[in-house]
């Protein structure tokens, strides 16, 4: 077993050989694609407000549902992972990334059946988002409640 020093020496030695991640270009791509997804979301929201009887507040839910549906379809068609490789965080952070995480896991585990495969593994990747989302909402809800009582 290599010692800590040997490990560090090796890491130093290979540093010049390893390709450096293009952080700035990746940020730019993420910004562009992430922004594009938001733009599409805005267009969908405007569409619901213009052609259906939705207010700006109530149009949010059908908009999110539509984005989720589009991302799920793109995942099934094998396109979303290619967008993801290009855009990185730009296509993971929006709700479409959440949809992709669920759909890809469902597709992957289809071969093990509907219950033990699809249903059990559906939130394999996205589960963490739900857990921390719920915990964070609870914590910040409590903080807000306490402050409101004190004011």
């Amino acid at each position: 077993m290599a010692t800590k020093e040997e490990q560090q020496a090796y890491a130093e030695k290979i540093k010049p050989i390893q390709p450096k991640p293009p952080y700035i270009i990746n940020c730019l791509k993420a910004f562009l694609i992430g922004g594009l997804i938001c733009l599409i979301g805005q267009a969908i929201q405007n569409f619901y407000m213009a052609f259906f009887n939705f207010s700006e507040e109530t149009a949010g839910n059908p908009t999110v549902a539509t984005l989720i549906l589009i991302a799920a379809l793109l995942t099934g068609l094998g396109v979303y992972d290619k967008i993801g490789q290009f855009a990185g965080a730009g296509s993971i952070v929006p709700v479409t990334g959440f949809s992709n995480a669920c759909t890809s896991a469902a597709l992957e585990h289809k071969s093990e059946g509907l219950v033990l495969g699809v249903a059990t593994n559906l939130f394999k990747l996205a589960g963490a988002v739900i857990v921390f989302g719920a915990v964070a909402a609870y914590v910040f809800g409590m903080i807000r409640y306490i402050f409101q009582q004190m004011m």
Binding site: Q18, P19, P21, N26, T75, G76, G78, Y80, D81, I83, G84, Q85, A87, G88, A89, S91, I92, G97, N100, A101, T103, S104, A105, L107, E108, H109, L125
Partner: peptide, 13 residues
């Protein structure tokens, strides 16, 4: 790694 259709970005390595 991840499901085949998962859209995570992989590094050049």
């Amino acid at each position: 790694r991840y499901p085949t259709e998962y859209g995570g970005q992989k590094p050049d390595t």
